[in-house]
Nucleic acid binder design. Structure first.
Length: 393
RNA sequence: GGCGACGUGACCGAGUGGUUAGGUAGAGGUCUGCAAAACCUCGUACGGCGGUUCGAGUCCGCCCGUCGCCU
C-alpha cells in the first residue's frame, strides 16, 4: 500500500496533507495517527509552539517528532514569512524522502501562507524605520492617509485597527502600489488535502476547560515562573494566552482562580476566531473522527475515482450552466449528469479522479460567464461507475 | 406579623417622565511579516396587574419575589 502510494506520488503533482481546527481539538493526535499510517512527517503550523521553553502553556506534544517546534527563543522575532520559507524547504525535503508532509496547526495565517503561496512584501531596514514612524501617529490620521492611497484597504480594515492600517500603509508607501493590489498568490508546487476537525461547540468548550486544568496540574505556574526570570511579559510570546494570566497571578494582581478562569475564557474566544478563519475556506474537508480522516487521506493519495454530488444555488438557470459544465466534465474525464432541479438550482453528479473533481467543483463555484453562483453544496461519496458519459438531463 | 430597601435583557450595571447607556459572556464576521494578535457587526430588557399622564423602566396603588431589620 505504502509503496504504490509513493510511486504515484513520485509521478504526478506532489501531495501534502494539512490538518486544521480550533485549539483543543486534538489536531496533533490525529496528525500523529495519520503520519504513522501514511508514512508522513509532521510540520507544526503553530505560532506559539515555535518558542523554546514554552511547552505546557502551548500544549506541545513531544511524543512524536514534529518540525518547526522549538525553533526560536521567546525574545526572538518571528514572522509568517519566515514560517512560510521554512515550511517550503521542509516540504521539499520530506517529499524527496518519499514521505508525506503533514502540516498541522491552528494558526490559520501560517497555513494559508504555505498552502496558497502568499507573496509577502519583505521586511527591510526602510520598512522597519517607516513602521516605527507610522506607529507614533494616531490611528485616525493614519487611516485618512490610507484612504487616499488605497481606499479599498481602508474600507476593509476600518479606522480603528491600527496594526493593520500601519502595515497597509507601510507596504503601500514602500512598494508604491496599493496594499490591496499586492496580495498575490503564487502557484504552489503541490496539491493539498485540507482536513478540518469538526467538534460541537459545547464539546470543544468543555475540552478547553479540561485542558487548562490539566496545564495547571502539569505545572504551568512553574513554567511561567521560570520563563519570567529571563523574559519580559511585554514580549509577544510571553503575552500568549496562559502565560499572561499566570504572570498577573505571579505579580499578585489576580488570584490563581481568576487567572485560570481568564485563561479558559480567552481560549474559548480564540477558538471561535480560529473557527471563523477556517470556515471561510471552502476547500476544507470537515471530518468528525479519525476514521473519516484516514478515509479522506487514503482516497486523496490513491487517486481513486470518487463521486461528488453538487447542488448549485444562485442565478444558474438559462445561463448555459449545464452545457458549460458538460464541456468541462468531458475535458476532465468525468462521468455523470447535470439537471435543472425544480427549486431553481442545478444538481450535478460527477465521478472521476479526485483532483479533477476538485477542479470541477472549483469551476462550479464560479459558473459560466452569465451565471451568478451564490452557494454550492457538495457531498463526496464512493465511486459507483454507473455512468458511461456526462450528460445533460 | 410590622417596618425598610430592592427587583432592568444570560450576567454585571447606569438611567427618576419623552432617542438604543455601557460592559461581559454569547453568536456572526474581517484577516497576506506581531495572528494565541488587532479589529468590525448583532442582541430592545426594565417582576405582575391596574391607575395617573398626550407619553412611565422612571410617579401612584395593590400583588408577587429577594434581602435586611424589628416583634
Amino acid at each position: 500500500m505504502k509503496d504504490t502510494n509513493q510511486k504515484k506520488r513520485a509521478n504526478g503533482t506532489p501531495k501534502i496533507v494539512a490538518i486544521v481546527g480550533p485549539t483543543a481539538s486534538d489536531k496533533t493526535k490525529l496528525a500523529i495517527a495519520l503520519a504513522k499510517k501514511f508514512n508522513g512527517e509532521l510540520i507544526s503550523a503553530d505560532s506559539r509552539q515555535i518558542f523554546k521553553g514554552m511547552d505546557i502553556g502551548t500544549n506541545k506534544d513531544k511524543s512524536y517528532p514534529q518540525h518547526l517546534i522549538d525553533i526560536v527563543n521567546p525574545d526572538e522575532e518571528f514572522s509568517v514569512a519566515q514560517f512560510q520559507k521554512m515550511a517550503y524547504k521542509l516540504i521539499g525535503e520530506i517529499l524527496k524522502r518519499g514521505k508525506l508532509p503533514i502540516l498541522v496547526g491552528g494558526t490559520g495565517l501560517y497555513i494559508d501562507a504555505v498552502l496558497y503561496g502568499y507573496s509577502i512584501p519583505p521586511k527591510t531596514k526602510e520598512s522597519a524605520r517607516l513602521r516605527q514612524e507610522l506607529e507614533r501617529q494616531d490611528a485616525q490620521a493614519l487611516w485618512r492617509k490610507l484612504q487616499k492611497l488605497d481606499s479599498k484597504s481602508a474600507v476593509k480594515i476600518g479606522p480603528h485597527n491600527k496594526r493593520r492600517i500601519v502595515r497597509a500603509l507601510e507596504v503601500t508607501l514602500l512598494q508604491k502600489m496599493p496594499f490591496s493590489q499586492l496580495q498575490n498568490k503564487r502557484q504552489v508546487p503541490f496539491q493539498a488535502l485540507i482536513i478540518g476537525i469538526n467538534i460541537p461547540r459545547v464539546t470543544l468548550y468543555q475540552a478547553i476547560g479540561d485542558r487548562v486544568d490539566a496545564m495547571i496540574a502539569r505545572g504551568l505556574v512553574g513554567e511561567t515562573e521560570k520563563l519570567a526570570k529571563k523574559y519580559s511579559f511585554d514580549l509577544p510570546s510571553m503575552s500568549s494566552i496562559g502565560y499572561k494570566e499566570i504572570g498577573q497571578y505571579l505579580q499578585k494582581q489576580i488570584s490563581l482562580k481568576q487567572a485560570i478562569d481568564e485563561i479558559k475564557q480567552k481560549t474559548r474566544n480564540f477558538a471561535r476566531r480560529q473557527l471563523t478563519w477556517f470556515r471561510r475556506n471552502k476547500e476544507i474537508v470537515w471530518i468528525e473522527n479519525a476514521e473519516q480522516a484516514i478515509d479522506a487521506v487514503a482516497y486523496f493519495l490513491a487517486d481513486q475515482p470518487r463521486k461528488i454530488c453538487l447542488k448549485i444555488y444562485g442565478n444558474v438557470l438559462g445561463v448555459f450552466f449545464r452545457a458549460s459544465a458538460q464541456k468541462l466534465a468531458q475535458d476532465l474525464n468525468l462521468s455523470g449528469f447535470a439537471v435543472n432541479a425544480s427549486d431553481q438550482t442545478v444538481e450535478i453528479v460527477a465521478e472521476g479522479q479526485e483532483a479533477n473533481l476538485n477542479k470541477f467543483l472549483k469551476w462550479c463555484r464560479q459558473g459560466p460567464a452569465l451565471a451568478q453562483v451564490d452557494k454550492v453544496e457538495a457531498q463526496w461519496g464512493k465511486f459507483s461507475g454507473e455512468f458511461s458519459s456526462f450528460e445533460i438531463r
